[in-house]
C-alpha cells in the first residue's frame, strides 16, 4: 500500500518536474527533419575548450618540449620571442610602446596586427590550448597531438613570464594559470 502510494507520488512528481523543466524558449517545433546525433559523433566534433577547463583532454607537455616545437613550427611566423611577427604577437603587452621591445613601433608600422597581444589581452589560458589545437600551425591546422599542444601552450605562457621554465602543463594546472587580460575585462553584453 505504502509502496503503491509512493509510486503514484513519484509519478505525479515526475509529471510536475517535466512541466516545470520545460525549456524557456520551447514552443512546439514545426519541423522534424533533423537526425539524431550520437554521443560518439558529438565527442569527435566537440573541440571547444571552456575557461573552466572543461573538455581539456588528458596529456601533458613541458616548456622545454614546447620550445623545440615552437622553433620548428611557429617561429617563422611569430618570431623568436613571439613578438616580431608578422603573425599575431604572442607575448608581452598590447599597445604602441614597450620598454622591453624598443623596436615595437617599427614592427607595428609593418604589421598593424602587432598592436594587440595574446599575452596582454587573452583572459584565459585555455584559449591558447583551444586555438593552437584547432587552427595551428596555419599551414597544417589540427596536425598537433594533444601533448604537443600542451607543450606549446606551456612555452607561450613561459614567453609571457606567466609560468616557470620547469613547468609540465596538464589539464589540472592549465586552468590555474592567471592571465593579465582577465582583470582588465569588461563585458558589453547584454547592452
Amino acid at each position: 500500500m505504502f509502496n503503491k502510494w509512493r509510486a503514484q507520488a513519484s509519478i505525479v512528481l515526475l509529471l510536475l518536474l517535466s512541466v516545470f523543466s520545460l525549456p524557456a524558449f520551447t514552443e512546439e517545433s514545426i519541423t522534424d527533419l533533423g537526425l539524431p546525433l550520437s554521443s560518439l559523433e558529438i565527442s569527435k566534433h566537440a573541440i571547444t575548450i571552456f575557461p573552466d577547463g572543461s573538455n581539456l583532454p588528458e596529456g601533458q607537455g613541458s616548456v622545454l618540449e614546447g620550445k623545440a616545437l615552437y622553433q620548428s613550427k611557429c617561429m617563422m611566423c611569430h618570431g623568436e620571442k613571439g613578438i616580431e611577427g608578422p603573425a599575431a604577437r604572442l607575448a608581452g603587452s598590447d599597445g604602441w610602446f614597450s620598454f622591453s621591445d624598443p623596436l615595437r613601433i617599427l614592427r607595428i608600422d609593418k604589421n598593424p596586427v602587432l598592436l594587440i597581444s595574446v599575452g596582454g589581452l587573452w583572459p584565459h589560458a585555455t584559449t591558447i590550448f583551444d586555438y593552437t589545437r584547432r587552427a595551428m600551425p596555419h599551414f597544417a591546422p589540427k596536425s598537433l597531438a594533444d601533448n604537443e599542444v600542451y607543450a606549446l601552450t606551456a612555452y607561450i605562457l613561459y614567453l609571457n613570464g606567466l609560468v616557470h621554465k620547469d613547468l609540465i602543463l596538464n589539464k589540472q594546472n592549465l586552468v590555474k594559470v592567471s592571465m593579465p587580460g582577465k582583470e582588465r575585462s569588461v563585458v558589453a553584453w547584454p547592452e
Binding site: T48, I49, F50, P51, D52, A88, D94, G95, V113, I116, S117, V118, L121, W122, P123, H124, T126, T127, D130, Y131, A135, G181, V186, A188
Partner: peptide
C-alpha cells in the same frame, strides 16, 4: 557560458 574563443579574446575586443 561563453567559450572565450580566439577572436573574442583578442582581435575582436575593444581597448577602452
Amino acid at each position: 557560458t561563453p567559450a572565450y574563443t580566439k577572436d573574442e579574446s583578442g582581435l575582436y575586443s575593444d581597448i577602452l
